[in-house]
Every structure is written in C-alpha cells, then in structure tokens.
Simulated assay, not measured.
Amino acid sequence: MLWARCSQSRYGNEITGRPRWREVHPSRQRECMEELRCQVCVQQSSRTALGYLFLAAQQTDVPADGWEGHLTAQPPLCLEHAKAAVEQCGHLVRAGAVTLRVRVPRLYGVIGTLYRTGPDGEPEPVEFDGESATTPLPYKQRQLTPWFLASQLVRELRGVTVVDLDDLVPAA
C-alpha cells in the first residue's frame, strides 16, 4: 500500500505541538493504529481484560448487535487523553461520545484517494460523491485497486463492550 506523506513538527524524537482533533497526521495515525497506541501521546493505550479503549461518536442508527463490527480510523486512547478528547474534540462534543472496550481490534483496510490514468497518461484522482470518498478500502481488495494512496488505517472492532468513561477515570 502506498501511503501519503507529510511533514511533522518534531524536537528530537518527540512530536511537538497541541492535538489537532480534526486533522490527524497520516503517519502518526498509522503508527498509533498499527501499534494500538494512544493517538494523543503515542504511549500505551488503556487496556484491560475487556480490551482496548476506543471512543466513537454517538450514532442514531446503531445496529441491533451494537458496535460489533464497527469500522474506525480513530486510534485507541489512554484514560487521560480519552477524557480530554471527550471534552475538546468538536465532533465528539457535538455528537456525544461512546466509550468502547474492544478485545479484538482487527486490521481492516485503509481510507485514502483512488487514482486512475488520465487522458494524458498521468494519474488523476477519482472523484466520489458523498460518503464513498471516506469508505474504507478493505485489505482483501487492495490487489484490485493498484492506484490507491492511503492516508488512514482502519480497524474493525470485535468483542465490543460499551462502558462509562466516568467509571474508568477514577479507577485509574
């Protein structure tokens, strides 16, 4: 898979700056999703017997089996930064946050840009309408889509338990 590149603000080996909740850096997102690290501090995410700690935006159309099989491009979090995300991430503040413990966060695929050969023989992005531009490309289909520039790694959440974040924080 070809991955998008962009610069990072680093001081030595430390990433500097404040979290930009809306603009997740592709390299950092990939690293945190691959290694199941906190997306804010890049340290070990919170993990218990119930699984890793993920946040999701509240949805009105949650299926009957709940969050089982939910696809996410949001890396897990440590307890400290989960609380900060619920308070500071505009999307989670507006929609409401759901706290999930996930036993099996399986690698699923990627989100990115599909390209095709243009009339001049150069690559050009394929334009999509609506949500299809953010629909993940499953890894099992990547051989069928050779001109794909990935920007976010996606995991499928299995073994999901909905928990209350307020109950988790004091225990930390």
Rank of each mutant, 00 (worst) to 15 (best):
C32T: 14
V40C: 08
Q88C: 06
V40F: 08
W21I: 09
R22S: 07
T16V: 15
H81M: 01
H81N: 12
G96W: 09
T113A: 01
R103I: 04
V24M: 04
G109Y: 02
G130N: 10
M1S: 03
P136R: 01
E80N: 10
A95T: 15
D120T: 03
V162H: 04
D65V: 01
A57E: 14
Q43R: 12
Y108D: 02
L92I: 10
R18C: 02
G118Q: 04
V102W: 03
Q152R: 09
R47K: 15
G96S: 04
F148V: 05
W67N: 06
E156P: 01
E122H: 12
L137H: 04
E34G: 01
T117Q: 11
G121H: 04
L53Q: 12
Q74R: 11
V162Q: 14
P136V: 08
P75F: 13
L144G: 13
T60F: 10
Y52W: 15
T113F: 00
E122T: 11
A57F: 01
V169D: 00
P119K: 03
L153R: 10
P119F: 02
R142E: 05
P75H: 12
A150M: 08
R30W: 02
A64L: 07
L114C: 01
D166C: 08
D129V: 00
A82N: 12
E87T: 15
R101N: 10
P19W: 11
A49D: 15
A172R: 05
P138Q: 07
Q29G: 04
K83L: 15
E131R: 11
E124A: 12
V160G: 04
H25M: 03
T16S: 05
K83A: 15
S45I: 12
L71Y: 03
L107K: 04
E87I: 13
A56H: 08
T117K: 10
R158A: 09
G109K: 09
G66Y: 12
I111L: 08
L92V: 06
P136Y: 02
W3H: 13
T48P: 08
V98C: 13
L50V: 06
V110G: 01
E156Q: 15
G121F: 04
A82W: 05
R22P: 05
P76C: 07
S45D: 07
L71W: 01
D65F: 05
E87W: 11
L107R: 06
Q59F: 02
L71S: 06
D65N: 08
R101S: 15
P19Y: 10
Y11M: 06
F148I: 02
